[in-house]
């Protein structure tokens, strides 16, 4: 089912693009950009949700609330839900698009792998999933040559007898750039900042290692994907170039509106300290308070 719904359409789309541009390297680049464009609404939604959550986390009143109810998780969750509802924030808004995008990314990756068939068995498997309206004879084999690379083999550029992994280096650099410009502004003592920094250091090397080990076709996909992501961020005005280019003024964040309204906490204080009479029943004052019309927000 996974193959029929995701991998097969992607593989055939990649083959069609390859047929049109007559170059597998360009086809990988175009295919990656196309998928990035198609998943752009999801990416945009994810960025928006992430930003909203970040704004909420840095809201001074929200922090105050967290501090106040640190020992009462149930109450904290109740208030958080109230805030989400009132402000239209979806706590899963940032991870849901990622979950939806994940099969697409894996499918794209597997499609590239399938098209780069280099053994008879892989060719046989590829032929089986080519749609009947595509003429296998005209498509196969795929010419893996692109610039100095053989897209089916790990890439090395031979300079003075030394094989330099140019793509792996470029993948490392672009992953680093991507991580840097996408890094949200954080406070120095923020625990998530430490985590983010570690990730930022690890990811480029992990991607670089994979690009070094894998076929050049996949490394080309990694590189294109990184560049497309950076371009997406730049297009949305979220890229902070000062983090990678010295001499550029850091991006000024617009003054943030307070998300949590102070009255909510006061209200909540009131509700929390509900008056009771000697028998433990709610007092008349509390009953009056309950009848008081809610403030419009």
């Amino acid at each position: 089912m996974w193959e029929t719904i995701i991998v097969q359409p992607f593989t055939n789309l990649l083959l069609i693009i390859t047929m049109l541009v007559k170059n597998f390297g360009f086809a990988i680049i175009l295919f990656t950009i196309l998928i990035k464009l198609l998943t752009y609404p999801l990416t945009a939604k994810q960025m928006k949700s992430t930003q909203a959550m970040q704004d909420l986390q840095s809201d001074p009143y929200f922090k105050k609330m967290q501090e106040k109810y640190k020992d009462n998780r149930e109450k904290m969750a109740e208030i958080q839900m109230k805030v989400y509802k009132e402000k239209g924030i979806n706590p899963f808004g940032s991870c849901l698009p990622t979950i939806i995008q994940f099969p697409i990314i894996i499918g794209l990756y597997q499609a590239i792998m399938k098209v780069m068939a280099s053994t008879p068995l892989e060719l046989a498997n590829l032929e089986r999933i080519v749609y009947p309206f595509l003429d296998v004879n005209k498509i196969l084999p795929i010419q893996n040559r692109f610039l100095w690379m053989d897209l089916g083999q790990p890439e090395r550029l031979n300079i003075f007898g030394i094989g330099i992994p140019v793509l792996a280096i470029l993948v490392t650099i672009t992953t680093l750039i991507q991580s840097k410009i996408m890094q949200p502004p954080t406070q120095a003592n923020d625990q998530s900042a430490a985590m983010s920094n570690s990730m930022m250091m690890m990811m480029p090397f992990m991607m670089g290692w994979m690009a070094y080990q894998f076929s050049a076709g996949l490394a080309l996909y990694f590189l294109t994907s990184n560049l497309a992501t950076v371009a997406q961020y730049a297009a949305m005005g979220r890229a902070d170039w000062s983090k990678i280019i010295p001499g550029i003024e850091p991006k000024k964040e617009p003054p943030k509106k307070t998300i949590i309204e102070p009255e909510w906490i006061e209200d909540d204080d009131d509700e929390d300290e509900e008056d009771t009479d000697k028998s433990g029943k709610p007092s008349a004052r509390a009953a009056v308070k309950r009848q008081r019309p809610k403030r419009k927000r």
Binding site: Y109, Q110, M113, E122, M210, F214
Partner: peptide, 15 residues
Amino acid sequence: ALVLSGCAAGVRAES
């Protein structure tokens, strides 16, 4: 990393 490596790390070929 494991998913990606399983598919392609090192010698990537099924035959």
